[in-house]
Design a protein around this nucleic acid. Structure first.
Length: 454
RNA sequence: GUGAGGUUAGUUCAGUUGGUUAGAACGUCGGAUUGUGGUUCCGAAGGUCGUGGGUUCGACUCCCACACUUCACCCCA
């Protein structure tokens, strides 16, 4: 008995219309990446579990998809773990591979394995799906695409600026109004030092990162709950509430951080990046946001986040600098900086704003319709010539009712139909109908190709 | 992992205190129209009412479990 087919939770099919839209996004992003000298790589969908485990924290280990060993995998399982139903121990006995969880760890693994043959600074981009055994909800899937672009092996702040330029170019091309939020991990460290709570930096940044969402009072409540002193919270208030231009904010914060060496370093870095950005004429608004924390564990320098101005959605792009990218694989001294474009969220934004260019969706330009075998043969010759001229064309695969053939063209939103009947064959021409205006005229194949090439 | 809602035709949804044959719109297919789609008119197909169990003379309707799905937390993209 045939059961209704379905797909695993959190996964999606992409129909032709969706693929056209997604490819438009991917192609736009790729073209900009290439323009800045980044080279594409791909890594396998599956990695050794030893590569993945322990890189994303305990939560991350739980969210990894594991792949059962081939063959009779239970023969290698110990009786002890089977008897005790010890899933974690059993896992290591029956699974050695897992699906990639992000693109950064496989990239680090790639760099370590190929470091002898790579030219540094190495500029790479990578657009591939990743998998997480998460509970799906709005904007969260178990299979989704990441578009990562990173430079590894260079400490220059120009790399940060180039990433800002890439963001600027990509969203300009896509027609999305965005604001880039910029911060620096060193400034956050400095703030924690000045507050006298340097060891609580993670609690502090996690709390102030929620400012937009839960408000100042709840942030302070959370800080107090984490054991931050009232005096320290008091010192934080003017920093959180800071207003003004980026320049004014930098001046204020450098005074606040006067006693923190690392904090001042962060201010200096940020100032350099902003100056570069201004000189190079970045059109996108770049806002210094001292409450931006974002994935604090990895990042050690600049932190970026991009938000769409016209749509209520989380960040659509984010990243930052992380020293010691490859340290976990035994190679230290390589610093990286990169950002990741969230293709699925960008897709949602473009859908809501209806920003797809019309020509993007056009596939077939003309459909040939015929009435009998003689016309069909003639039309096949015409079709060949039209395709050779580089025009996307098709023929209805059998001579049948006009209505049916027209409906087919209409259903695919094909802009032109070439009608081939007895009189057209005799004249050696086709009746070209414009499906939008309804106008039609008798044309030769040469005239047809020149009309459609416009 | 925690909490709340939902699941009826391809899609979006109605469905009366539990009562004969479960409806609509859109879409699909056919015809009106044998050389003209998108508009109009006529007709048809399409449902184990998420799955399994329970209560009942009788369940789409009430109860339980599970699956799937949406939303909010946690975390993240």
């Amino acid at each position: 008995m045939a059961t209704k087919p379905s797909i695993p939770k959190g996964t999606r099919d992409f129909a032709p219309m969706e693929m056209a839209r997604r490819n438009y996004i991917f192609d736009t992003i790729k073209s900009v990446f290439r323009l800045y000298g980044f080279q594409q790589i791909e890594t396998p969908a599956m990695e050794n579990l030893s590569t993945l485990m322990g890189k994303y924290g305990d939560e991350g280990d739980k969210l990894l998809f594991k792949i059962l060993n081939s063959g009779d995998f239970l023969t290698h399982a110990s009786q002890e773990s089977l008897d005790n139903r010890d899933s974690i121990k059993l896992l290591h006995e029956v699974a050695e591979k897992g699906l990639r969880y992000d693109l950064t760890v496989p990239f680090a693994r790639f760099v370590v394995m190929n470091k002898e043959s790579l030219t540094f600074p190495f500029k790479r981009f990578q657009i591939q799906p990743v998998w997480r055994a998460d509970k799906p909800q709005k904007g969260r899937y178990r299979e989704f695409y990441q578009c990562d672009v990173d430079v590894v092996g260079s400490d220059s702040l120009l790399n940060e600026v180039e990433l800002l330029q890439i963001v600027d170019d990509v969203y300009h091309k896509l027609g999305v109004n965005v604001v880039v939020k910029l911060n620096n991990r060193k400034i956050l460290t400095g703030i924690a030092e000045v507050m006298g709570e340097a060891d609580k930096i993670i609690d502090i940044t996690v709390a102030i990162d929620k400012l937009d969402k839960i408000g100042i009072e709840n942030v302070n409540a959370e800080l107090a709950e984490k054991g931050i002193s009232q005096e320290a919270i008091g010192k934080l208030q003017p920093i959180i509430a800071m207003k003004g231009t980026n320049q004014e904010k930098l001046e204020t914060i450098s005074k606040v951080l006067a006693t923190s060496e690392i904090g001042l370093k962060g201010v200096e870095e940020t100032s350099t990046i902003l100056n570069y950005a201004e000189e190079l004429g970045i059109n996108t608004e770049v806002e210094l946001d001292l409450t931006l924390a974002r994935g604090l564990n990895y990042y050690t320098g600049a932190i970026f986040e991009v938000k769409a101005k016209d749509v209520e959605i989380g960040s659509i792009t984010g990243g930052g600098r992380y020293d010691n990218l490859t340290g976990v694989f035994g190679v230290s001294g390589l610093s990286g900086v990169g950002i990741s474009f969230g293709a699925d969220r960008i897709y949602d934004v473009l859908n809501q704003l209806n920003l797809y260019p019309a020509e993007m969706l056009q596939g077939t330009q003309v459909v040939f319709t015929t009435f009998g075998d003689k016309e069909f043969k003639f039309a096949l010759q015409c079709l060949k010539k039209v395709r050779q001229a580089g025009i996307s064309a098709e023929i209805y695969p059998e001579p049948t009712k006009m209505k049916k053939q027209m409906s087919y063209a209409n259903g695919k939103a094909v802009p032109f139909v070439a009608i081939v009947g007895e009189t057209e064959v005799e004249a050696g021409k086709v009746m070209l109908k414009n499906m939008t205006s309804g106008e039609q005229k008798l044309v030769s194949i040469d005239e047809l190709t020149t009309t459609l090439k416009k």
